[in-house]
Nucleic acid binder design. Structure first.
Lengths: 350, 350
DNA sequence: TTGTAAGCGTTATCAC
DNA sequence: GTGATAACGCTTACAA
């Protein structure tokens, strides 16, 4: 494989001159430039970014560390981040932690070794120490989706508290008195915030003693299990709040297996919509977050930091949107025709 | 940031000795090893993989170049590839081409510059030249999801022909005489193969003159448009075959907007299921591919190549699975209850 | 079992 | 405008 040196020899110039032509930096006479370009062409020269990065201390690479791309919410975040990165000429490394702090730690170490310029992190745990370590090694960090206990990095997240409060107020309005929230791990801020929104909405209605919170995982199986537990309570809840899409799906499966009808017997609302169109017959009342925007904004913020922006850390809270559908009984109790249902759901921007 | 040299000085050994300790390669006396490890610890030394890669000509990095992670099929492929890579200590770079050859080319060039060890490619076009170029630059390639016109790389793909044949035979069995296939770009092999399967099934039943093929994009909007065109044909088709999930969704929207009921007025079958559970009320009769396996197998094959496996190129055709559901009329014409429907769909392994 | 010397392919720095 | 020189941090090849 031809190197910059080879090109220099062939063009009869110094290596640095080739470098200047290739990178369009510094002054190069038109005549020399053409000679170099011809040599590049002839030799099929492809610059070695590793060598460049070693010297320049810039890899033009970002990483996105999240729990699972397979979750449609994160899929969309990944696409947004990827688009931002590509526009800036950066590549994006993807890492799935499955919400395990140990995996996260392992990936972060690998990323520092590779000298990625920045990391978009959806932290599985507290993350404060990890972020400080990254920064110590010269790696910038922007946190996505989740809050930090201390302001050690920029954060881009959705309005978990407001969204869940709206969703649960809706349940109260629908006449539900006994309800339960099925949520993810306690150490994840979205999990805590969404429970908090639930609590606040119930407290407003004087129902704090009538509701329960179940902590588990942001997974279908956990959603299934938690729904089962919730249904065993007495008095039995007439409404369930699933704090993410996977929990909602698990809960739905549990309800079906038990012969509990939604929304006739039990209402179900959830955080995170499935991408519009992906579901043929949208059914769940949800609060959805601007996932694509989250990925995009996060990457943009990160890139700005890399360009030396030294503003204090900021927390960007993106607005969420509530969509009322059948699962909370908002459209009567008769199943609608699966096809040809033209009545649009009610959408409220929060 | 501490370097290997710093560690060497602190431990009173030569740099190469530190290298041996860090990489667990070559002989190092226990006593020396401990001394080095202490120094590593004390200085917070993190190896610089860039420098290592520059010398060793290995980046321990793979790339996955596909059309759009947002497509649940590719999301799952990405997860499979990511898991394989992680197990081998490799990182995975993700690139979205949106089925544009120019973007693909741009990404491939960037990947060569970065000296990734291997590329998992879902080619937007013919790709033969691109693959040869990559290999010329020392980058291994495994092609996913799509066939190549010449055997220039390993291929891991699903059984498009067999799957679509089965799906379309099913349509014939259901009594459909006039039908149409809505498919992606002509230059993509899956698109051609699925049309071919459709044609073969129709020919078997002597219906070749009663069917039409519409080529477009693997997108919702294209699916919508093609369904519209198909419905304008006379005689109007009573069955549509969408060759991927996005086209199916677009078609479904078109049918709904036109007040055409599925499956009463028109039957719809499709390639690619949505991940089980992701859809609350599965409705579409589909052939689904083992997406996770495809990503995993592809990455494994690639890693084996990197380890010097010199077998001739192989084409791995993964079996697909047909699932009969309501959209093809397999379960009668009455909409079933959306919840509490315990009757399992019919699944056939091909 | 450990070390020396050279080089991987660039770019930063400074000089002309 | 162009170039010489050194350096980025590591590993290969060979020697001791």
């Amino acid at each position: 494989m031809a190197t910059l040196q080879d090109v220099a020899k062939k063009a009869g110039v110094a290596p640095i001159t080739v470098s200047r032509v290739v990178n369009n930096s510094g002054y190069v006479a038109q005549e020399v430039r053409e000679r170099v370009e011809a040599a590049v062409e002839e030799l099929g020269y492809v610059p070695n970014i590793l060598a460049r990065s070693l010297r320049s201390r810039q890899t033009n690479t970002l990483a996105l560390v999240l729990s699972d791309v397979t979750n449609p919410f994160f899929t969309t975040v990944a696409r947004g981040a990827g688009d931002s990165a590509a526009e800036a000429g950066f590549m994006l490394i993807l890492c799935n932690t499955d919400e395990r702090e140990q995996e996260e730690q392992r990936y972060l170490e690998m990323l520092v070794q590779r000298r990625v310029d920045g990391v978009l992190l959806v932290p599985a745990g507290k993350a404060v120490r990890q972020i400080q370590q990254l920064r110590q090694h010269g790696t910038q960090v922007v946190v996505l989706d989740r809050r930090l206990s201390e302001p050690v990095a920029d954060v881009v997240r959705g309005d978990s508290l407001g969204g869940s409060r709206a969703l649960c107020r809706h349940l109260v309005q629908q006449g539900h008195r006994v309800s339960a929230v099925l949520t993810g791990p306690k150490q994840v801020s979205t999990s805590r915030d969404r429970v908090q929104g639930f609590r606040e909405a119930m407290a407003e209605a004087g129902l704090e003693t009538m509701c329960r919170a179940f902590y588990g995982q942001y997974s279908q199986s956990s959603g299934y299990a938690m729904a089962g537990e919730a249904l065993n309570q007495t008095p039995r809840p007439t409404a369930l709040f699933a704090t993410n899409n996977f929990i909602a799906i698990g809960a739905l499966n549990c309800l079906r297996d038990r012969g509990v009808k939604v929304p006739e017997d039990v209402a179900l609302v959830a955080f995170d919509d499935l991408p519009p169109g992906l579901v043929t017959f949208p059914f769940l009342t949800v609060v959805s977050q601007p996932a694509y925007e989250m990925g995009r904004k996060g990457a943009e913020l990160l890139l700005r930091r890399l360009n030396g922006d030294a503003e204090p850390y900021q927390e960007v809270v993106l607005p969420v949107e509530m969509t009322l559908r059948r699962s909370s009984g908002s459209f009567g109790t008769q199943p609608e025709s699966m096809i040809g249902d033209a009545s649009p759901p009610l959408v409220e921007r929060l």
